[in-house]
């Protein structure tokens, strides 16, 4: 990753700077360009669904924002701060940015939380301990405060009676709800959902989507989700982005994109998905 110039996201006409900005972000694996010059602004509190065929780079968008992948070009901004980069030495205000240090990453990363397809709970810890680990060791909460916060979040996701259960004793849907509570315990501003229902049995999908719906209604969170649940995307998202071959092929309000897709690829994808199920 090289030094870059990128403008601090300015307030748009609405008067609010975007919560997340991908500024000309490129990601390559060897010769394969997974994301090509991605330009995407996401407003605070906005709920964005990312859809597209597999290999279109949609999961990579979330993984880059969570700093799980390094980027090869461009800058990602979160809440007005460069995340993948930091201001270069002695260059304050000049717009010159150098790749972020581990220390800088740890400072900015706290604003983002992520829920994974395969839950990734810590199997040797109870549901409650899963939710307490990071608040205690990263945020410096006392064990008592962390326990209260964790218990509250676990009851919010409907698992108030499962605090001492280990992940192995929970169903997939329950595990995923613990994972949501665990991410929320860090009080992120941006929540990422990476195909969070794909690994679940069909009858368990509903309970996880209900929790996400509730989060959207009750919290002022910016939410970005990669999903194959077109019905949920349509109903829940403020905006849908259709990715194709590492680019945003089409973006718009769900009603437009699902009801009257402009792009030929979007049409093909949607009809294939709808046919399948």
């Amino acid at each position: 990753m090289e030094a870059s110039t990128s403008e601090r996201p300015a307030a748009a006409e609405g008067g609010v700077a975007p919560m997340v900005r991908f500024d000309r972000v490129t990601k390559r694996y060897g010769a394969l360009t997974v994301l090509d010059d991605l330009q995407l602004d996401i407003a605070a509190g906005e709920k964005v669904a990312i859809i597209g065929p597999s290999g279109s780079g949609k999961t990579t968008v979330l993984r880059m924002l969570m700093t799980l992948e390094r980027i090869d070009g461009g800058v990602i901004w979160v809440d007005g701060e460069p995340m993948t980069h930091m201001p270069g030495p002695g260059a304050a205000g000049s717009g010159s940015l150098v790749p972020a240090s581990q220390r800088h990453l740890r400072q900015v990363r706290g604003k983002v939380g992520m829920v994974f397809q395969h839950f990734n709970l810590f199997p040797h810890m109870s549901a409650l301990k899963n939710c307490m680990e990071a608040p205690v060791t990263v945020l410096g909460l006392s064990r008592k405060e962390a326990r209260e916060r964790g218990a509250e979040l676990l009851s919010m996701v409907g698992l108030g009676d499962k605090l001492d259960h280990f992940p192995g004793q929970l169903s997939g849907g329950q595990q995923q709800r613990v994972a949501i509570a665990r991410a929320l315990a860090m009080r992120p501003k941006v929540m990422l959902f990476d195909e969070v229902t794909s690994a679940l049995d069909p009858e368990l999908v509903g309970e996880v989507l209900t929790v996400i719906r509730k989060l959207g209604a009750e919290h002022d969170l910016t939410m970005i989700m990669v999903t194959h649940q077109m019905g949920f995307a349509k109903e829940f998202a403020d905006r849908v982005c259709f990715f194709y071959q590492g680019r945003i092929a089409e973006t718009g309000a769900p009603a437009e994109l699902f009801g009257n897709p402009e792009n030929e690829r979007t049409r093909q994808f949607l009809s294939a998905v709808l046919e399948a199920g």
């Binding site: 969570m66 994974f116 709970l121």
Partner: peptide, 26 residues
């Protein structure tokens, strides 16, 4: 599993805490 490391990063755990609390006990 790789997911354990990734969850640790996503929760912003330091490398030291990741080893002490997540990786070594498993």
């Amino acid at each position: 599993p790789k997911g354990q490391w990734e969850a640790s990063i996503a929760l912003n755990l330091s490398p030291w805490v990741t080893f002490r609390d997540i990786i070594i006990p498993q």
